[in-house]
Amino acid sequence: MKSKSRTLMMQRLALHAALTPLAIIWLFPLWMMFVFSTMPDYGIFSPDIVLWPSTNFVENFKNLQADTNFLRAMFISITVAVIYTVLSVMLTSMAGWALARYRFAGRSMVIAIILGTITLPFAVVVIPQFIMVAREFKLANTWVALIVPPLFNSLGVLFMRQSFSMMPTELFDAARVEGVKEWRIFLHIALPLARPTMAALSIILFLASWNNYLWPLLINSRPGMMTAPVALGTLIGLTKVSWGGIMAGAVLLTAPILFVFIFLQRHFISGIAAGAIK
């Protein structure tokens, strides 16, 4: 028994020895982003490499706020991401449920089309989508333009469909025999059981919206309607680029995501793993 636990410990040590450098490589840019956000511009470009934070964060943030009204941009980003995530999870759940649990003519075709759209890069869609939203519907510089067009999320539909497909049919048959209405079966039985998958999907969708740069840049160019990544992007190209301000903005952009992930990582991992079984 002793030698077995010793072998296990050695294996663990070896694993950590291999993974620690990888973790450092991954974390180092994040750390440096934080360090730079606390330094004045001349410090960032100093030939000495400084690995520890300085005290200039508030100053950098003030510059950022003065240049971009970054707090407003953060508010827009958060609002858009939250509304988008809630709506998209609702829609993808309903679509996934229908595709997983109901037999109807053309179901396979619908699934194939949805699957097909995953392979389409956004760059292919962005121009027609822009023309449709901005020119045909005249929705440029509106909340609707920011939130609605990306709502259809084929990956989310397939993700939720997989989750519902894996639930035992007998659960829903039992409810049907009991006379529970279809929408109540969805709401009271299927959705609570899909919670881990929904949590994982929420993180993915929130992240997608939070990081979305191209679409908000195209559709919302008015200063008061910019999302945070777009606002940050406007700093590059100015005659005097405030790198400390950009880094402070990047830290503020990254922090919420890190917190969301840490808070939901248990759900995230079980949700992703659930899709891997069968």
């Binding site: 035992p168 007998e170 659960l171 048959d173 039992a174 409810a175 025999v177 039985i189």
Partner: peptide, 10 residues
Amino acid sequence: AMVFQSYALY
């Protein structure tokens, strides 16, 4: 009323 093999309890 039906009783299932897998119990089908919620």
